[in-house]
Nucleic acid binder design. Structure first.
Length: 333
DNA sequence: CATCACAA
DNA sequence: TTGTGATGG
């Protein structure tokens, strides 16, 4: 779920218009896919599926979101996770358990007709398996959108690409990219303008977070931000019970990091975690090339194979209303 | 999530 | 026009 630094970052999130986000976006693929799979569901939690029962929620998300990206001048590159570090083992195991539990509760809620409860648990049961990853890559390729396999964590690779200047910002809902040193992180880019929460419609706009502003504003270094992360918990260690972002920064500022760890989690060696955030495995072996979409191929995949409506897919690929002078997807390349 | 049809 | 609810696969 990423590091819980929300309370510290709150003041440094700047709402920005989509138009200011043109350029290359390094998208945390795992994060985006999880969002699609967890949210694109029917009210009882059933995901979109083709006639044979294969899940297609992620394909729907990828198609429509990327069409919108490209129309707004955003050129995405999807960064997939490679081999997870050993440090992540406990988190992976825990997530597996949470998913299994959610799956069970989903079934229970369904059987007693509690739709709302069913939807909630269905979301948490979302699993990104090899098929989801393979089909996502296949569709991205057909759309002419580059994707790369990170050597290790996708967020680390995406952050590195922004540091190098090959991308303008990382797209993720998680704050981990800041610990990995991403100069710029954009959240809510994968969320539409409006969203209903408990009956009320609120407007969600993309928010940009600049690492330098966070560090300057909080008067801390990136190393200290990482230490705060370790106290509140990351994918690589469970946090200290009772320590949130606010307490964490106070302790780090007071130089109490080592003492607190010694007392509350003596078995934890923070060294490898610090090292992983500061120098994660990354690769320069990638090339970013955006091609015009293979519309026939996309139709073949989505309509012939996964039962998407031909009309909807065609319309999406054409761009929306055929206004005069409006460029269609093809003319971006 | 994104789109669409239809209501207000 | 803008908002809401249903549907997509």
């Amino acid at each position: 779920m990423g590091v819980s630094l929300r309370d510290l970052i709150l003041d440094y999130r700047k709402a920005v218009p989509m138009e200011s986000l043109g350029g290359v976006a390094a998208v945390d693929a795992h994060n985006a896919l999880y969002q699609f799979l967890s949210i694109i569901r029917q009210p009882d939690g059933t995901p979109l599926m083709d006639r044979t029962g294969r899940i297609t929620s992620h394909l729907s998300g990828i198609l429509f979101r990327n069409v919108n990206f490209l129309e707004k001048g955003i050129r995405p590159v999807y960064v997939f996770d490679g081999k997870p570090p050993d440090l992540k083992k406990a988190t992976i195991e825990q997530r597996r358990n949470v998913r299994a539990e959610a799956d069970e509760r989903w079934r229970e809620a369904l059987s007693r007709g509690d739709t709302e409860e069913a939807y909630k648990h269905a979301r948490s049961s979302s699993r990104i398996d090899a098929t989801v990853i393979a089909t996502s890559k296949e569709l991205l390729s057909l759309m002419g959108i580059p994707w790369i396999d990170a050597p290790s964590e996708g967020e680390a690779q995406a952050s590195y690409m922004v540091q190098k200047g090959d991308a303008g910002y990382v797209v993720s809902q998680d704050y981990d990219a800041l610990l990995f040193g991403a100069p710029t992180l954009v959240r809510n880019l994968t969320v539409s303008g409006k969203r209903k929460i408990r009956g009320r419609t609120i407007t969600i706009s993309p928010e940009k977070i600049q690492l330098v502003e966070v560090l300057r504003g909080l008067s801390i270094s990136r190393e200290e931000l990482i230490d705060i992360g370790i106290l509140v918990g990351t994918d690589f260690n469970r946090g200290i019970r009772g320590i949130g972002a606010k307490t964490g920064i106070r302790m780090v500022r007071a130089g109490e990091f080592d003492a607190v760890l010694r007392e509350k989690d003596p078995d934890l060696d923070p060294g490898p975690i610090r090292e992983f955030f500061q120098n994660p495995p990354v690769s320069d072996e990638y090339q970013l090339e955006w091609r015009s979409p293979d519309t026939a191929g996309i139709e073949r995949m989505l309509c012939d194979d996964y039962d998407f409506s031909r009309e909807r897919v065609r319309k999406a690929l054409e761009g929306s209303a055929p206004k005069t002078g409006q460029r269609t997807l093809d003319t971006w390349f």
